[in-house]
């Protein structure tokens, strides 16, 4: 474990806690894409299949349980909670996430480190996570006003993978870790997808104005 990865995990955890807090405190999920949240559940389920089989550390296991639990409860709130589900506007959250799931799965079957169930699922989860934010970004572009909590949620979510990029650089040079193209390139793409959001988020923060993404 290094400071970059810890910072990344904490940023990731904070983003999810922030979203869960927004939904529970405001009893609203306005501006949040259910499609993206469902993709994250798929990412965690396929990445943590080895949770019961492989023990790395207490931290690793507890964080996997927390990520699984929080992401599933966010989808539950948005789909089934009697009050929250009224605030979900499915007419604007129209991104067909099957167009992300299938290509990522096919790609994971073709490009992976080993053709085993665990490895292919792990690779699939990395490819899918790289593009999972797209429905949410599309939804933000359609939203006239983005509330601060949602903006902060997306910013923290993008920042966490940027910390992971630093973690991989550290591990490669300091721990002379071997090259790992799949997580590295997926992580690079994932962070790049946030680039324009980061630009508008920082601009709105500097100019103290409402966050607005160009359509």
């Amino acid at each position: 474990m290094n400071a970059f990865r810890l910072a990344g995990d904490m940023t990731h955890l904070l983003s999810i806690i922030l979203l869960l807090h927004k939904i529970r405190a405001m009893k609203s999920c306005a501006g949040i894409s259910l499609r993206t949240q469902e993709l994250y559940v798929i990412v965690f389920v396929t990445r943590y299949v080895d949770l019961s089989m492989k023990y790395y550390s207490f931290y690793n296991s507890i964080m996997k349980i927390v990520f699984l639990g929080t992401s599933i409860s966010i989808v539950w709130y948005m789909r089934y909670h009697k009050v929250v589900k009224q605030t979900y506007n499915k007419d604007v959250d129209t991104f067909r996430h099957i167009f992300l799931i299938l290509p990522c799965f096919v790609l994971a079957l073709l490009i992976n480190r080993a053709f085993t169930v665990i490895e292919v699922l792990w690779t699939f989860s990395l490819y899918l996570e790289a593009v999972a934010i797209l429905p949410q970004l599309v939804l933000l572009q359609r939203s006239r006003n983005i509330d601060n909590l949602t903006g902060n949620y997306v910013f923290l979510l993008g920042a966490y993978r940027a910390f992971y990029l630093l973690n991989w650089i550290y591990r490669f040079f300091i721990e002379n870790h071997q090259v790992r193209w799949i997580p590295w390139l997926s992580g690079l793409l994932q962070t790049a997808i946030y680039a324009d959001f980061f630009y508008y988020y920082i601009k709105s923060w500097k100019n103290r104005e409402k966050l607005k993404l160009p359509a």
Binding site: D50, Y56, N60, M63, K64, F67, Q178, P183
Partner: peptide, 10 residues
Amino acid sequence: DTETEAHDEL
């Protein structure tokens, strides 16, 4: 072995 080591991250 390096195989499983690759999955030590979240």
